[in-house]
Design a protein around this nucleic acid. Sequence first.
DNA 1: GTAAAAATCATGGAAAAAGGGGAGTAAGTA
DNA 2: TACTTACTCCCCTTTTTCCATGATTTTTAC
Lengths: 209, 209
Amino acid sequence: MATKIFIVDDHYMVIEGIHSLLQNEKNIEWMGHASNGASCLAFLIHEKPDVILMDINLPDINGIDLCKTVKLKYPDIYIIGLSTFNQQSFIEKMMENGASGYVLKNATQQELMEAINTVAEGKQYLSFDAALALRKPEHENDTPVITRREKEVLALIADGMTNNEIAQTLFISVTTVDTHRKNLLAKFNARNTAALVKIAMQLNLLAIN
Amino acid sequence: MATKIFIVDDHYMVIEGIHSLLQNEKNIEWMGHASNGASCLAFLIHEKPDVILMDINLPDINGIDLCKTVKLKYPDIYIIGLSTFNQQSFIEKMMENGASGYVLKNATQQELMEAINTVAEGKQYLSFDAALALRKPEHENDTPVITRREKEVLALIADGMTNNEIAQTLFISVTTVDTHRKNLLAKFNARNTAALVKIAMQLNLLAIN
DNA sequence: GTAAAAATCATGGAAAAAGGGGAGTAAGTA
DNA sequence: TACTTACTCCCCTTTTTCCATGATTTTTAC
């Protein structure tokens, strides 16, 4: 029985590349592609692929969120994350949101086929590079645990607000904001605000708006 | 006479996609690909393509710099920039460094063929989106033009260094670093360092290390 | 219901950044 | 050659962050 494949990616050349890589595979049935999250969800109303290859960077929605949505509605569909980055935080979040695998865009045909076949059996697959990123020692890659309030303060700091402004925004004292700031610096092991923001951005903790 | 095409891109799927898009074209001769700048230059010693499709993000060298180098050594080779971004600054710099065209990775086969044919005749080609980005007034375009030195300072700031430490690292005066910092804040329209780093990260101006 | 974690607030001082000026030199371009 | 750009350097003042060291009150979790 052929595995039905669907792709969500906004880059035509990548879609064509994957299509080309898979077109001679007998046990693969190409169902087509979507170039954004909305048309992916629309497609899924009527058609049910076995495996979705899903880019993390989509024009309308975050691939990580789309993964969550799809998995919630259609738990039987297996999802493989697809991106140019092998950053631990991306991979981790994708897997947390129900993805069964993660492949980099410089993967070979072999890797891609291995990923699809493994995932189609219900198992998990991580490309070598992705697995390597995940296996890094705890202190090198773990995102610190921050509280709800700290996250709020962090976002406002990154927006360029001073402690005073943040205090007024959140209706709390300046000294409280200062405490949160200090705790953030400690948790992220950052020397100052600049380093803090950089690390937070790398860990994808700041929404892009 | 067939146009000889060579590709420099570190994403196997993109290479495969382009190959697939071009394989049925009669007047295209596929010469192969390189996945980094070094092997591209090595290839060019013995072989001379007519047109090179060149990714902007390469593992070893900036595509913009590679473009300059190639054009300097082999002025007869036409180069088409290739990337996922249609940011004005990228396109502009690529064209300044001798590229004859710029195509986004979500281009269709038609666009790609049009680009190759146009460029092979010695003319310039910009994809619709790329041309649009270039035509935008400066203030609408979000990527400020920063100098080499400013970029260095920016990177060190984002690493958490103080003006004093940066000064010692770059062997310049603290006041000079301060000037660069002030100019960066002005160019990025950032209220403080935190906002500066966030914007720089969003614009992909800080290497991930 | 108690213990832990989170959120709140505070003082005071040292360090750094932000904001306002001005100015000279070197290199490349029109 | 004249002009522009990048890079360099300096002064002064105010604002903000960073650091150390406290403490009290809510929430949350077991």
